[in-house]
């Protein structure tokens, strides 16, 4: 796919996220929208995988540590052909494979169960370590959030991966600067985040998380790093693509259509406004389906 096609795909993923959350009536908006470009880049360019054979032994592994952003993963997987796009509308409903937080035993391809924060990187590091013991060639990726860097378990994994030079492991940090109680630098400051990883023996890259080309280049760059695990600190805008949600911690755990929130559009209009903005790229083009 060309970069332009990937951008178009990411936009479709965002629209599906809004529709899924509206239908589910609960979940998280900011994180998934902010990570749509990155998940599109992974499922359509970076990963070596076979959507029709999710358990293919040589696939690259993509772990998601911050499980609450799973709608973006589900949407990207559906668009990549793992399951029908219509199944997205079952999110969070009784009997669904698309659990509110992803479960390994329910949906092939999600690699592990997550939701409780801070334990994904350690699982990915364990997986990378084990696969290296058997000389496997695939890569292990782990998406994490910035809020997770409050957790000891995450830093224990950073130490382990650094000690063991896990060069088959790449972590991607959603550096969107928000968590539930507010901005990360107010709740528990993380900066200088890159210096911390460097001190722990990691190779560090920064990308604009909405620049798909940069994301792909960084993932390729990491493959060429021989000595260390790599962390890609992806600077993203939470709620990206929906003006009233962008950069606002309020939308971490709120979804469109459920509640009237002071300072936000009325609940009956929230989803409609979001979809209109996405379809018209914030008014820059005429919507295709308006």
């Amino acid at each position: 796919m060309t970069i332009e096609e990937l951008q178009h795909k990411a936009n479709e993923v965002r629209q599906d996220i809004i529709k899924m959350l509206l239908e589910a009536g609960s979940g998280h908006s900011a994180g998934p929208l902010g990570m749509a470009d990155i998940f599109t880049a992974f499922y359509f360019e970076i990963l070596n995988h076979k959507p029709e054979d999710p358990n293919w032994g040589d696939r690259d592994r993509l772990f998601l540590s911050n499980g609450h952003i799973c709608p973006v993963r589900y949407a990207a997987m559906a668009h990549a052909g793992y399951f029908p796009i219509s199944e997205l509308m079952t999110l969070r409903k009784l009997g669904t494979r698309l659990q509110g937080h992803p479960e390994r035993k329910r949906l092939p391809g999600v690699e592990t169960t997550s939701g409780p924060l801070g334990s994904g990187l350690a699982q990915a590091a364990g997986y990378a370590y084990a696969s290296r013991m058997d000389n496997k060639r695939f890569r292990v990726y782990c998406v994490c959030s910035d809020g997770e860097h409050d957790a000891g378990n995450h830093w224990e994994a950073v130490l382990f991966a650094g000690k063991n030079n896990l060069n088959n492991l790449t972590a991607i940090v959603d550096r969107n600067n928000i968590q539930i109680d507010g901005h990360t630098e107010d709740v528990m400051p993380l900066e200088p985040l890159d210096e911390k990883y460097k001190a722990f023996n990691w190779h560090v890259l920064h990308v604009d998380g909405h620049n798909i080309e940069e994301v792909i280049d960084a993932a390729n760059h990491a493959k060429a790093v021989y000595e260390n695990p790599t962390v890609i600190i992806a600077h993203t805008i939470p709620g990206k693509g929906v003006d009233y949600m962008e950069n606002d911690p309020k939308w971490h755990g709120a979804v469109p259509g459920v509640a009237d929130i002071p300072g936000e559009p009325p609940k009956g209009k929230q989803a409609q406004i979001a979809l209109h903005e996405l379809r018209t790229l914030g008014g820059k083009i005429r919507g295709e389906h308006e």
Partner: peptide, 8 residues
């Protein structure tokens, strides 16, 4: 806790 699922 409902829709959040088993983890929560």
């Amino acid at each position: 806790v409902g829709p959040d699922g088993a983890t929560h």
